[in-house]
């Protein structure tokens, strides 16, 4: 029956948008489609203004620079899904990159040890966040803000704040190489997006997170291991931030401790504009992915048009508030 409605629906979307849209798209996928559409519109309108914009190389460049946001905001999305927030992502990215740069020192020999070390350290920071939130019952944003500051201090104490040597050449080659005509990072991005969608929306663990986010009390009554799930989610967020940091270090061929800070707020923006509810329990990874693409495109546009970097923040913040307004009006309609 849904199939039939789908075919008839496509004809008159314009007329009955509100009633029909629910049938041809799952309601939680609508923001994703909307944001993706906005991204395409942004690229097309830029192409009209500036004909040099939108070459294949440039689109690839946009995709490659979006990879950090795509990876890091998966973790942020999982945390937000449970009703929390992770403000340590920027610092963890820096730490991940610094460990890689510090251990490999411009050669590939140590990379095999450096990768697991960096990822383990980043996951450990996430796990500490999770313990603080789940066991010590600290408010998530306080716990993550504090641990971020603390570990930034630790990083600063151990290093001088920036890596003295380049990262392993293999990592740099990975970020600039290509296979079958597509850049390697884009392959990675596709693989990551598929895996992330499967984990968040296709596994029992993912479903449990939704249950926990929409009603923590009910989840506990039902016997879900909420403490372990919370710790796992923050650990996953740390892991994702670590991966993003390693990729970022490979992309810029060196690392600084504060290189991830600029990406913290965009991870939140990507999740929120992707349709996730900030109080938890709603939102799909596809939305976050679309949000990350949109923000990355926007960033490129602002750079190309040499607009003030401040404008980027204004737009980003405005988008977050706009998305919240949109969500609240949607939920008001439903009532």
């Amino acid at each position: 029956m849904i199939q039939n409605k789908q075919t008839t629906a496509v004809d008159d979307i314009a007329g009955f948008e509100k009633s029909v849209a629910r049938q041809w798209l799952r309601s939680d996928a609508r923001p994703a489609a909307l944001v993706l559409l906005a991204t395409v519109a942004l690229i097309v309108s830029m192409k009209l203004v500036n004909s040099e914009f939108g070459s294949l190389n440039q689109l690839n460049a946009i995709l490659i620079t979006s990879i950090f946001l795509v990876v890091a905001s998966f973790g942020q999305g999982l945390v937000i899904l449970t009703g929390g927030i992770d403000l340590s992502i920027g610092v963890v990215m820096g730490i991940g990159g610094m460990i890689i740069a510090g251990m490999t020192r411009g050669s590939d020999d140590m990379l095999i040890y450096a990768l697991p070390t960096a990822l383990a350290c980043c996951t450990a920071i996430g796990v500490i966040n999770g313990i603080g939130v789940a066991v010590a019952k600290l408010p998530p944003f306080i716990m993550t803000l504090s641990s971020g500051t603390t570990f930034f201090g630790v990083g600063l104490a151990l290093t001088a704040g920036s890596s003295q040597q380049a990262v392993a050449p293999a990592l740099q080659q990975f970020m600039s190489g290509s296979w079958l005509g597509l850049p390697l990072p884009v392959w990675f991005l596709i693989l990551f997006a598929v895996l992330a969608t499967l984990v968040q929306n296709g596994t029992a663990g993912g479903r449990k997170l939704y249950a926990m986010g929409s009603s923590p009390g009910a989840a506990r009554v039902l016997g879900l291991p909420t403490t372990m799930l919370t710790i796992a989610v923050y650990g996953a967020s740390g892991l994702c931030a670590g991966i993003a940091g390693i990729l970022l270090a490979g992309y810029s061929s060196s690392a600084t401790l504060d290189m991830g800070n600029a990406l913290l707020m965009p991870t939140i923006a990507a999740v929120v504009i992707g349709g996730a509810r900030v109080t938890g329990g709603a939102g799909i990874y596809l939305g976050t992915l679309a949000g990350a693409f949109f923000l990355s495109t926007l960033s490129t546009v602002i750079t190309i048009m040499s607009l003030s970097q401040g404008l980027r923040s204004v737009i980003q913040g405005g988008i977050i508030i706009g998305a919240l307004l949109l969500q609240s009006s949607r939920s008001a309609q439903r009532r």
Binding site: A269, R312, Q316, G318
Partner: peptide, 8 residues
């Protein structure tokens, strides 16, 4: 959101 806007 307003923090990011203000910083911008």
């Amino acid at each position: 959101g307003s923090l990011i806007v203000c910083q911008g």
